[in-house]
Design a protein around this nucleic acid. Structure first.
Lengths: 101, 101
DNA sequence: TGCACCTGTAATAAAATACTAACATATGCA
DNA sequence: TGCATATGTTAGTATTTTATTACAGGTGCA
């Protein structure tokens, strides 16, 4: 992972709102409207946060049909581990490209 | 560590500029003017970044007198390890206060 | 005295993020 | 038909972060 990738992944979770979203989704996928109610947040704003989290690979969304036939957009927390130390940072800075994982 | 502490620590390193600063300081303390030259950045801007990094505990600064009697402000990278997983985030969100370490 | 260094801050401008309000569209059901 | 639910976007505003410019002050030395 290079410095740009690292900083953008970190930026995606450097937010209490987005940490809260991930926490809500751990072990329990939720659809957008339900998540918005639990987070006490407008859907428009939630979409913005979800877009950042999904772009960084921390959550993933998919459409599902409810029993009564309505489309629901479910989001799930994606498993990951990020370990950061000064050496990891130095390695990231001192290279142009990084591994996918 | 609670969600606020976690997000503010992450925010402090969620920046390519600040990752670069840490990388420069790993294993080699530098004074502000020298670091500014290496980062190709104005001192005023560098001070802002250093203030954020120091507030979050990633670097630490101290005054030193050079051989010819001039005051130099040296900064050093502080050793640390941050490991983040969905479970760590959930734990941070679901508590009010956290341990110092 | 003047030049080359250094630390430190204040005021301001520019850019990026976060947030709100409003809208369009669709489904099921009484 | 009308209400309650849902997805999704856009346009505009507010706030925060980043960056620049311009200071004021200190030391050593030729």
């Amino acid at each position: 992972m290079n410095a740009e990738e690292l900083s953008s992944r970190l930026a995606a979770i450097a937010s209490t709102q987005r940490l809260g979203i991930i926490a809500q989704l751990v072990g329990e996928p939720l659809h957008v409207s339900e998540l918005a109610r639990r987070m006490e947040m407008s859907r428009a704003l939630l979409y913005m946060h979800l877009a950042k989290l999904e772009a960084a690979g921390f959550v993933t969304g998919h459409l599902e049909l409810s029993e009564d036939g309505k489309a629901l957009k479910f989001f799930t927390a994606v498993p990951f581990t990020i370990s950061i130390t000064p050496a990891v940072i130095a390695a990231a800075v001192n290279q142009q490209e990084g591994k996918t994982d």
